[in-house]
Design a protein around this nucleic acid. Structure first.
Lengths: 247, 247
DNA sequence: CGTCATATTGACTTTAGTCAATAGAAGTGG
DNA sequence: CCACTTCTATTGACTAAAGTCAATATGACG
């Protein structure tokens, strides 16, 4: 399937281009090169593994639809989720330069993932060296998000951590065009939320109940509704600047 | 002062070159270009601010001697340390592409820092586009360390977190040639250790006492001694692979 | 010698984790 | 479409880890 049609994969690439353009304006040729990137598409079921920890990918994967999460397994069997990716996000751009990959990636919902061979990226960068800086920028934003997570995890209550995570996801999903009626598909289990925030499932459950009782979120039918994002952002002390999603 | 002499700044650049060479072998010309990078040196006192959060640096800073730490301030005044840098490490390479910078950097001990103008980096990359990939790699390693911290912070006890942090620092300082007699200069206060691990000062104090009692560390006179790194690594379940320090 | 930062200790509180049971939902095969 | 299995969510009772507050000690330094 070519990425030049109007399917969801074209939208994902459009999202990527729109994102990279925030670093610096892209020429028509650069945009064309990005659009021409070959995407090997594949569908994943909820929970299915997309990238294996310790592998040495020859391609980098991008979320086309759905949500993916990246996680590390610690020796005693516990899991820590280190990032979430929405349509248009690379899940492992860094594997372009850093191998083996230090974490796994799995589908948080039914998802479509497109894979771009590193060789194709190399070829593109050869032709458009300036894009190299744009990819660096994308990697840097990814790292900035991880640092924000560190700050949240280290210094926030469970209640605030969850609120912050929902805010982040809301902004990113909205930017990716996935929000309608203040809500979006959200299939993460409470166990997964716990793995993202470093909390036990039971405590996640209780904190979610508190958030619901306070009218800050609605979460049912695999849909997360945030009736008042400003209110949620206020309790989470959330500032979207670190996401670098200008518009 | 030129980086071509034998001062500590030459050693720092040597460390950087040795580090980047782990990504892929560097040609003599590439090495020469790296060595020729202009370093604006400056000395900092313990605790002094090196880079201000929210600023838009036109240079990236590298630790020449001492230890620096990067931190974020959260709205209520709490602080979270998101990374430590040892001689040869960039503290804010990502500010080359990502502005404003999302965290501050301060000296954890008396330190010398060298600054490299982004313009000089750009010029070097123009001449040696392959080095662009090497810098990407360096940024990717930095991000991998942040992800490891996430996993540790989310899923480990205070005791293990501290042990893990000391292991990481030991390996990195050793690689940078700063370890003698199984110890190295270590001027972080207990409050700073708490800010790094998301712990209160009191709890850090008690956990350190436990580590001392168990004979895993010696910490006095601003010197951290690890009599048996294997034993410490075992209790911390520390695997140095994520640091990507091959030799 | 006095001041300020850092480290240590004790007493107490709070947050979050653990264990175990139950309830609901979703998915599967027949 | 139903019976069954399997996840996932929820609840209660209890425990443990870590935080808070406040006092005191120790050490560096001008």
């Amino acid at each position: 399937m070519s990425p030049m049609n109007n399917g969801p994969e074209a939208r994902a690439i459009e999202n990527l281009i729109r994102k990279l353009a925030q670093f610096s304006p892209l020429s028509a040729e650069e945009r064309a090169s990005l659009k021409a990137l070959p995407l090997r598409l594949r569908q994943y079921a909820r929970g299915e593994l997309i990238v294996e920890q310790g592998s040495r990918p020859e391609e980098s994967a991008m979320v086309v639809s759905g949500i993916a999460f990246r996680f590390k397994l610690v020796p005693d069997g516990a899991r820590q989720i280190v990032g979430l990716q929405v349509p248009g996000d690379f899940v492992d751009l860094h594997s372009f330069v850093l191998k083996p990959i230090d974490h796994a990636v799995a589908a948080a919902s039914p998802a479509v993932v497109g894979r771009i061979p590193h060789a194709a990226l190399e070829k593109m960068l050869e032709k458009h060296p300036r894009l190299s800086r744009a990819l660096m920028w994308d990697m840097a934003v990814d790292a900035a998000v991880a640092r924000e997570w560190l700050a949240i995890m280290g210094r926030r209550s469970a209640y605030q951590q969850l609120a912050h995570l929902f805010c982040e996801l809301y902004f990113r999903m909205d930017w990716a065009g996935q929000v309608r009626d203040r809500g979006f598909d959200f299939a993460l289990t409470q166990a997964e939320l716990g793995d993202a925030c470093g909390l036990s499932t039971v405590h996640v459950n209780r904190s979610l109940q508190a958030l619901r009782k306070d009218g800050l979120i609605g979460l049912e039918n695999h849909t997360l509704v945030i009736p008042n994002i400003d209110a949620l952002a206020k309790t989470a002390e959330f500032d979207p600047a670190y996401l670098h999603l200008l518009k």
